[in-house]
């Protein structure tokens, strides 16, 4: 399954994000924990990738390092051609604002802002206005038109997460990182959110990297990378719930 081939508008080739010989070590001596152990991994543009693995496999650490939220102990992280490993705080902030979208498990929204204001927050932080046509399209995709003036406390968990998806989409980032995006919502809402994410990859060539421990969620992806003990164990292209489950069982044995 090749997402690039399915989207003719996508001109970028190569790699959206990659980790080169990436290691992350916590603690020292006997207490040393290797969360990432000399990992080499690449994520293709316009692809929906999932990172899976048992608890403590380093999957969240990998995502956080790829997204510039955490620093590697050694190795490098590239966003496209940009080496973000040693970027300064200010430059990193700009990269996050202009090139990355985030979807977290929960507490994804600023409670004092309305749904619409939350969606346009990254653009506003950059002092820009969102492209109205694209904004309109995003709102349409996530189905929030009737909820735009509501505050997060007036939205259900699923609706809040849809706002978060829209916020990640609206600035058309090079890559969206999602950390257990369906971890806090019921299965119906979860399926909807995963559906939107797959839709934007297919239709608009958006790149998404998602961490999940849920085989159903992983089955929405084009490709699943399996982590175990800080190393890449395996990967699966065109996963199904069953094939993912099989892999997981094998990893946990």
């Amino acid at each position: 399954m090749n997402a690039v081939a399915q989207d003719p508008s996508q001109k970028r080739a190569g790699v959206a994000a990659r980790a080169v010989d990436a290691s992350k070590v916590y603690g020292q001596g006997d207490n040393e924990v290797r969360a990432l152990d000399h990992i080499n991994v690449e994520f293709a543009p316009a692809q929906y990738s999932a990172i899976m693995g048992p608890s403590g496999s380093g999957k969240s650490t990998l995502l956080q390092c790829l997204a510039g939220l955490d620093q590697l102990t050694s190795g490098q992280v590239f966003l496209g051609d940009l080496d973000i490993t040693n970027l300064h705080e200010k430059a990193l902030t700009r990269v996050r604002r202009d090139r990355i979208g985030f979807i977290f498990q929960s507490f994804n929204l600023i409670p004092t802002l309305t749904a619409l204001e939350n969606i346009t927050l990254p653009e506003k932080l950059a002092g820009k206005d969102a492209d109205p046509a694209w904004l309109d399209q995003v709102i349409e995709i996530v189905g929030l038109r009737s909820r735009l003036r509501h505050r997060p406390s007036e939205l259900s968990g699923g609706q809040q997460q849809r706002v978060a998806v829209a916020r990640a989409l609206v600035s058309r980032p090079d890559i969206i990182f999602a950390d257990e995006p369906t971890g806090n919502v019921d299965s119906k809402a979860g399926a909807e959110i995963l559906g939107f994410m797959r839709q934007v990859v297919r239709e608009f060539g958006q790149t998404i990297v998602m961490v999940t421990h849920d085989p159903i969620a992983a089955s929405y992806a084009d490709r699943v990378v399996f982590l175990a003990d800080g190393s890449i164990d395996d990967e699966l292209v065109g996963p199904t719930t069953e094939s993912v489950l099989d892999h997981m069982r094998r990893l946990e044995v």
Binding site: K90, R96, R97, F104, I110
Partner: peptide
């Protein structure tokens, strides 16, 4: 958490 989120989505210090 809010402040962390603001920073994650591109808010500067």
């Amino acid at each position: 958490r809010e402040i962390g989120l603001l920073r994650a989505v591109g808010g500067s210090k």
